[in-house]
């Protein structure tokens, strides 16, 4: 597998705006899981800002900041999002279900498209390269990462990879109607994470192996063989992006839900967190476990040189 080095990472989450690999002080007693808005004006033109929904703003803030720090022209822009632009979708659905709405404003419609994020990034950067959006539920980000690895294997050098999901109040309403537990509803989260990946310039931290399997008879056995194959020792931190997932493997572990809330692409920020752990050289590896659906699971392993 082509090694993919991580050069930059930027996230927006309920923990705030987080740039680089220094581990910030993480609060683990959060009562709210809404992403803290940074000052978007620093990179997004104010005129466009007004009409953008939060998910677009978050994604642009992360990706444009990364791009500003480098002279590179991206060979590919790859984004994973679970639910896409919920706010714009809700807005347009409300518009059209009103009786005799007549001609509606197209803004919400055009922005509701799932690839608005990758498209807006390309537009802002005038980037004509590969541009992709993966939307496979809880594995959207894992699949985007898989795509990045595949494209690196096919010759791409510099890739901008990211994830984003937004929260709208309707989700809470639906959660209540569907009789979710109140704590689970409170933990509905949101956030965005973007990374500069390079296939040829080393950075110290790299993606060692990534696996997404939709069909797995025995998840624990699967994890075991993945860990064995990659010669992972006890000095590995396990980051779990799934609520209620219990893995007893003698590794240090952290649940992302408590840190940033639960959203479909929170494995994005798990990578960011993993990078920070690796940077501090506390661990040899960071393994991200996403077992978001009953049968499927994603395993992403990072190492450092």
């Amino acid at each position: 597998m082509q090694k993919l080095y991580i050069h930059q990472a930027i996230s927006i989450s309920t923990q705030g705006f987080w740039e680089g690999f220094d581990l910030p002080e993480l609060r683990e007693d959060l009562e709210e899981f809404k992403a803290v808005d940074p000052d978007y004006k620093t990179v997004i033109p104010v005129m466009s800002l007004r009409r953008m929904s939060k998910i677009t703003k978050m994604a642009l803030m992360c990706s444009l900041t990364i791009s500003k720090n480098t002279e590179l022209v991206w060979d590919g822009i790859i984004v994973g999002t679970g639910l896409g632009n919920l706010a714009d979708t809700e807005k347009f659905l409300t518009l059209i279900s009103a009786t005799d709405a007549g001609l509606n404003s197209p803004t919400a419609f055009t922005q509701s498209s799932h690839n608005t994020l990758s498209g807006q990034i390309a537009l802002q950067l005038k980037n004509h390269g590969y541009n992709m959006t993966h939307v496979q539920r809880g594995f959207s980000f894992e699949n985007a990462l898989q795509d990045a690895i595949l494209q690196a294997n096919c010759g791409m050098k510099n890739i901008l990879l990211g994830s984003a999901d937004e929260h709208i109040p309707l989700l809470d309403t639906l959660g209540r109607e569907m009789k979710y537990e109140e704590r689970a509803i409170v933990q509905f989260g949101e956030g965005a994470s973007f990374f500069q990946l390079s296939a040829d310039v080393p950075s110290g931290i790299f993606v060692q192996d990534a696996l997404v399997k939709m069909k797995s008879e025995n998840q624990l056995q699967e994890i075991d063989s993945f860990v064995t194959k990659n010669k992972v020792d006890k000095k590995c931190c396990l980051l779990i992006t799934t609520p209620d997932m219990i893995v007893d493997c003698g590794m240090d572990r952290k649940s992302l839900g408590d840190l940033v809330g639960n959203y479909m692409t929170n494995s994005g920020i798990a990578i960011h967190l993993g990078c920070a752990y690796l940077q501090r050289e506390e661990y040899n590896h960071v393994l991200i476990l996403n077992a978001n659906s009953e049968a499927g699971m994603g395993l992403t392993l990072f190492g450092h040189e």
Binding site: S113, G119, M132, T133
Partner: peptide, 8 residues
């Protein structure tokens, strides 16, 4: 492997 692409 199951994936969904949404690029309009």
């Amino acid at each position: 492997y199951i994936n969904t692409i949404s690029t309009a």
